[in-house]
């Protein structure tokens, strides 16, 4: 494989990683919570998309918004009823709680869907430019991932709710005094984080097989992307995703695919120790 091909593969993968991690990053940055549910929500999005396509013949692009909204509702309700009650507690509490919720969701999915990998096969063929070969469904996945990530950016910058979320992130007390209902904003934020996970899962199911065995791996990617790119910002997640995608692609090329993951984690540990604000230098909460 040429270097150019490896680079292109990395960029395509990186766009998917950015989309996968951006919701996790938002929740961490705004709520100061490590959402251990994130991996399972991605898989849930993938499963729902697959079964809509497989059982009812609904095209994934059509299913995507409904899947995303459904998962938004799950996230919103979870935050409003459960997580909000401990949102100010130490990491140990919030992380353990979301892990507990993750176990429940994971278990339910396993019972209903089993762990068999499923994938939406769209058979769109491949394109070739010079020496570079790329399946069209991956390009579609990349485009969707970038569009979704861009949409989130627009919502955070332009909409009232986006501004409110940013305000709460900057200064909770001040936002509260100005009449922002913080518990609702937290719920919406967590909902959006879940929505992005679900949408990313839907996109993934068109490109790669999804299975419940991947929840931990996806969560791990989200960790790494966040630490590389810096917390709580869409551009940060985009940078983090692309860097990780490209690094994994090259690491897989040179050291073998089984080491791609290790390299990502090692990079994260290195950055955590050397520069916990990430490559973009955007400051996190702590």
């Amino acid at each position: 494989m040429t270097i150019l091909q490896t680079l292109v593969n990395g960029i395509v993968l990186g766009a998917l990683y950015a989309c996968l991690a951006v919701g996790f990053s938002l929740v961490w940055g705004v709520l100061n919570i490590i959402n251990m549910l994130h991996g399972s929500l991605i898989i849930l999005g993938g499963y729902l998309t697959f079964f809509a396509w497989h059982s009812y013949g609904i095209h994934p692009l059509l299913a995507l918004p409904f899947v995303a909204i459904f998962i938004f509702c799950i996230g919103y309700v979870l935050q409003l009823t459960l997580i909000n009650r401990v949102v100010n507690e130490p990491v140990l509490t919030t992380l353990t709680l979301t892990f507990g919720l993750d176990l429940i969701l994971y278990n339910i999915m396993n019972v209903y869907y089993t762990a068999t990998p499923v994938r939406v096969t769209l058979d769109l063929g491949i394109v070739q430019i010079g020496n570079i070969v790329m399946p069209v469904d991956r390009l579609l996945g990349m485009a969707l991932a970038l569009i979704l990530t861009g949409l989130l950016y627009v919502v955070m910058r332009g909409s009232r709710i986006g501004r409110a979320i940013v305000a709460v992130r900057m200064d909770r007390t001040a936002a509260e005094l100005m009449g922002v209902r913080v518990d609702r904003i937290y719920a919406v934020t967590f909902g959006i984080g879940a929505l992005m996970a679900g949408a990313a899962g839907a996109v993934f199911s068109m490109v790669y097989p999804v299975t419940t065995n991947l929840t931990g791996a996806f969560l791990g990617k989200a960790f790494v992307v966040c630490v590389i790119g810096g917390l709580g910002s869409v551009p940060g997640a985009l940078v983090g995703g692309l860097v990780l995608g490209i690094i994994e692609s090259f690491a897989g090329q040179f050291f073998g695919p089984q080491h791609a993951l290790t390299v990502g984690f090692l990079l994260m540990l290195f950055l955590l120790v050397v520069k916990p604000t990430g490559l973009t230098g955007i400051k996190g909460y702590e």
Binding site: N32, I34, V91, P276, E286
Partner: peptide, 9 residues
């Protein structure tokens, strides 16, 4: 590292 960063590490 403290807090979340320590947890993730």
């Amino acid at each position: 590292l403290r807090g979340h960063y320590f947890a993730i590490a």
